[in-house]
């Protein structure tokens, strides 16, 4: 599904991300782990089509509209939690009724169903992250790219996130996380790819 060969991203004369070979199969769960600044975010952005200045090969048989990327510090649009979660579903032409039921389902999946009517500006950092994840997972896109989805989350929140990731059966999910934190909480079903600096 995704093939990366000799990928290199340079910024200001410095290599900020280098991947020699990485293949991701359809439906796979992959954790990209590495120290801060070794290029995890850049790799996910390249795969998500948000970063176009790179050398090497990054080939995915998924259209850009089906590669959903969640920022390391996610952005929620003005409005309510429900409006945010239905955003991607509306963009996919889903009926209003289906949008609402899918949004509620994914908010419940992430343990934030009770926040549906709240204004996003009033949410805590952890709540905002879970809402952003619900918004992304609800699309059930072919490729989900989650940049450090566990940051700001307590143990309960992490459990909800892993359970929700397991529930998007049809999607390929790539998560990034710094070492060593992630290794302790990674589900066994997750393959890891260690990104080296430079």
């Amino acid at each position: 599904m995704l093939q990366i060969r000799n990928l290199k991203v340079d910024k200001a004369g410095k290599t900020i991300c280098r991947v020699d070979k990485l293949d991701i199969q359809r439906g796979e769960r992959l954790a990209v782990i590495g120290a801060n600044g070794c290029g995890k975010t850049t790799l996910l952005r390249v795969v998500g089509g948000l970063e176009n200045e790179f050398s090497g090969l990054c080939q995915a048989d998924v259209p850009l509209g089906d590669r959903v990327y969640v920022h390391q510090s996610p952005y929620l649009f003005r409005g309510t939690v429900l409006q945010n979660v239905t955003y991607g579903l509306a963009a996919r032409g889903m009926s209003r009724r289906d949008q609402r039921s899918a949004a509620h389902r994914w908010l419940d999946e992430l343990g934030v169903g009770h926040l549906a009517a709240r204004q996003c500006a009033t949410l805590s950092g952890g709540e905002q992250r879970r809402v952003a994840l619900a918004r992304a997972l609800a699309t059930e896109a072919d490729l989900l790219l989650l940049d450090e989805p566990l940051a700001d989350l307590d143990c309960e929140g992490m459990e909800f996130v892993w359970r929700a990731i397991a529930a998007v059966a049809g999607s390929t999910v790539v998560v990034s996380s710094p070492v060593p934190l992630v290794e302790e909480v990674l589900p066994a079903t997750l393959r890891t790819y260690r990104l080296e600096c430079g």
Partner: peptide, 22 residues
Amino acid sequence: RVAETARTLGAGWLRRWRTSLS
């Protein structure tokens, strides 16, 4: 991140434009 989030969630140009205005 406004434009990136809208784009990555699959919004077309019209929806992205409406989002930026909103």
